[in-house]
Amino acid sequence: MEDRRRANPDTTLGYLERLPALVLLARLPVPVLAVERDGAVVHANPAFERMLGYPADQVQDRTIGDLLQTSSPGRSAVAELRESAGKLVALEHRDGSTVRALVSKSVLERRDDPVTLVCFHDVTEQLWDGLSARDF
Rank of each mutant, 00 (worst) to 15 (best):
R50V: 07
D113P: 10
A90K: 03
E49N: 10
H93K: 07
P46D: 03
S106E: 08
G96E: 12
R18S: 13
A44Q: 10
R110L: 05
V42H: 06
D113H: 07
S106K: 05
V115W: 02
L68Q: 11
L22F: 15
V35P: 04
D95I: 11
A79F: 01
A101T: 05
L108V: 03
R75V: 12
D113S: 06
R18C: 06
E92P: 02
Q60F: 01
V118C: 05
P55W: 11
A44I: 05
I64E: 00
T70E: 04
R75Y: 14
N45G: 05
S76P: 03
A77S: 05
G74F: 03
L33P: 09
A90T: 00
L25W: 01
E49Q: 10
Q60E: 12
R27D: 13
A101F: 02
G39M: 03
D57Y: 08
D66K: 08
E17Y: 09
T116K: 00
G65I: 07
P20A: 14
L19I: 15
R27T: 11
V99D: 09
L52I: 02
P46H: 05
V32W: 11
S84K: 06
Q58H: 06
L68I: 14
L52N: 11
C119K: 08
Q69L: 13
A44N: 09
L22M: 14
A47L: 11
V30M: 14
V89T: 08
E36K: 08
R111N: 14
A90I: 02
R62T: 04
R94H: 11
P46Q: 10
K87R: 03
K105E: 14
V30S: 06
R37E: 13
H93N: 02
Q69D: 12
R50G: 04
K87S: 07
L102E: 10
P114W: 07
E36G: 08
S84D: 01
L117C: 03
S84L: 05
V41A: 02
L67T: 12
R100H: 15
V35T: 06
G65E: 13
G65W: 09
G86C: 04
G53C: 12
R50S: 13
A101P: 05
C119R: 11
N45Q: 09
R110T: 03
A47Q: 03
A77N: 02
I64K: 00
T98C: 07
V35G: 00
E36R: 12
Y54R: 05
S104C: 02
F120C: 01
H43Y: 07
P73M: 02
F120D: 09
G86L: 12
P114G: 00
L108Y: 12
E17D: 15
V115L: 14
E36S: 06
R27N: 10
P114S: 03
